[in-house]
Write a protein that binds this DNA or RNA. Structure first.
Lengths: 214, 214
DNA sequence: CCCAAAATACGCGGAACTGCGTATTGAATA
DNA sequence: TATTCAATACGCAGTTCCGCGTATTTTGGG
C-alpha cells in the first residue's frame, strides 16, 4: 500500500532536495506540495486522503505551527512531521503542543526521514536525537505557558452555558438546571456559536477549552 | 576507541539476549553486568570507567529508577539508557526525572540499540518511537496524577473515533477522514457509548478526557 | 484451522440539535 | 433620554444524531 504524503515548504530548493531524498522510496507518493500553511490547507480541502504531512516551520502567510494546529483539528488522523533547520526550544514546545508527531532536522538523510515516516505511521513518534534530548529537558523543566488567548466577548452567562455544555448536558437539561426555557438556552447557544465562529457543541467546547475559558 | 558499557538486568535470559545482540558490534565492550541496582553501584565503585549503562526498570533490591538517580548523582558523565517493556507511563516519567538519556524497548534489535548508544554518546538522546510518543504526551499534559483510571475496553479504532469527536467533527466528516461509511462511524460511536455508558458525543468526549484516553 | 472480537456496512423511526426569524424586558450608558 | 446590549421567550423547517436491528468481512489468537 502506497503512503500518501503532502509537503509544506516555502523554499523551492529545500523542497526539491526533500523530493530527491524521498524518491529512493517508491512506496512514498507525494500527493501535493504547498509554499505555506494556507496553501496546504487548501490542498487538503481538495484531497485529504493523506497519511502524513512534512511541515516546514518558517513559512510566510501561515507558519508551520499554525498549520499543524489547523491540520490536527480538521483531520486528526493525519500525522504531522515537523522538518526544520532550527531547533530552538520555543518552536519545539509549540510544535508539540500543536500536535506534531515528530520533529526532524532538515539535515537528516533520506533513510532517516523515511524511517521517521514509517515509525510515525506505525503509531509511534519520531525525533532526531538532538530533538529528543530537548524534549526530555522540556519534561524535566516544563515551560509555563500563559493562556487566555482570547475571550471572544463571551458574557458570564454564556460561559455558564459553556460549562454546562462541557459536561454533555442536553439543552433540556441545561434549561432545567438554570431555570430558563429551552428556547433561551437555544438562543444563548446560537450567540455562543456566532462569537466562537463554530456550528456545534463539540466545536464550541473545544474552542473554549483551548482558550482557557472553561 | 572502544565503548565501555555496563548492564543492569535481573533476568538472565534477557541479559543473554542483549549480549548476543550487542556482540555484532565489536567496538562495544561490556565491562560488567549486575542483577539489580545495588550490584550495579557496587560494580561501578570498582570500575566506573564506563561510558553508558543499559538499565532495566524492574529489578529487585534497587529498581532502575533509583539506580539511575544514584548513577547520575555519583557519576554524572555516565549516560543511562533505560530498557523498558511497554505500558509504563508512570515509570517513564520518573525515569526522565531521574536523568536517563534514552529509553529503549527490550524488543528493539541490535542495530537499533547500537544506534541508540551512539546517538546518546554523541550528545543526543535516543528513544523508541513508542516511547517518543509517550514523552510527547507528557509534554502536552504534564504530571496528571489520576491518569488512566480505566480504559473501558476501548479499541484503538474507537479511540481514533473519539479523537475525531473531540474536535467536533460530524459523523459525515469523520467518515470522510477515515475512509469508512457513515454507517460504520455510527456503529463505532454506538459501541463507544455502550462502553463508556453515555448517550451523546459530549458526554463521551468528557468521560474519555477525564480518564486520560484522549 | 477455527473461533471470537473487531471493523465494516445498511435502514428505520424518533429525538435532539441548528439556523433563521421575531419579540419583550431591564440594565447600563452615551 | 435614547440607544445599546444582555437575557429572556417562541416557532418552523431542515439537519444531524441516537437506539435498535441485521449482516458480512477481517483479524488475531488458540
Amino acid at each position: 500500500m502506497p503512503i500518501y504524503i503532502a509537503i509544506a515548504e516555502d523554499n523551492s530548493f529545500a523542497l526539491q532536495g526533500l523530493k530527491n531524498r524521498l524518491a529512493k522510496h517508491p512506496e512514498i507518493e507525494i500527493k501535493h506540495t504547498a509554499k505555506n500553511g494556507k496553501e496546504l490547507l487548501k490542498n487538503l480541502q481538495k484531497n485529504h486522503n493523506i497519511d502524513l504531512v512534512l511541515m516546514d516551520l518558517q513559512m510566510p502567510e501561515m507558519d508551520g505551527i499554525a498549520a499543524t494546529s489547523a491540520v490536527k483539528t480538521k483531520y486528526p488522523q493525519i500525522k504531522v512531521l515537523i522538518l526544520t533547520t532550527f531547533d530552538d526550544d520555543e518552536n519545539l514546545f509549540n510544535a508539540i503542543l500543536a500536535g506534531a508527531s515528530g520533529y526532524l532536522l532538515k539535515e537528516d538523510n533520506g533513510t532517516e526521514i523515511f524511517q521517521a515516516i514509517m515509525d510515525t505511521l506505525s503509531g509511534g513518534a519520531a525525533m532526531s536525537p538532538v530533538i529528543a534530548l530537548k524534549t526530555l529537558q522540556l519534561v524535566r523543566q516544563p515551560i509555563s505557558k500563559e493562556q487566555k488567548v482570547e475571550d471572544f466577548g463571551l458574557t458570564q452567562r454564556e460561559i455558564e452555558l459553556l460549562t454546562q455544555l462541557k459536561n454533555g448536558l442536553t439543552n433540556e437539561e441545561i434549561a432545567s438546571n438554570l431555570h430558563i426555557s429551552y428556547h433561551t438556552v437555544r438562543k444563548h447557544i446560537e450567540n455562543i456559536y456566532r462569537k466562537l465562529q463554530v456550528g456545534n457543541k463539540l466545536k464550541a467546547v473545544k474552542k473554549a477549552s483551548d482558550n482557557g475559558i472553561v
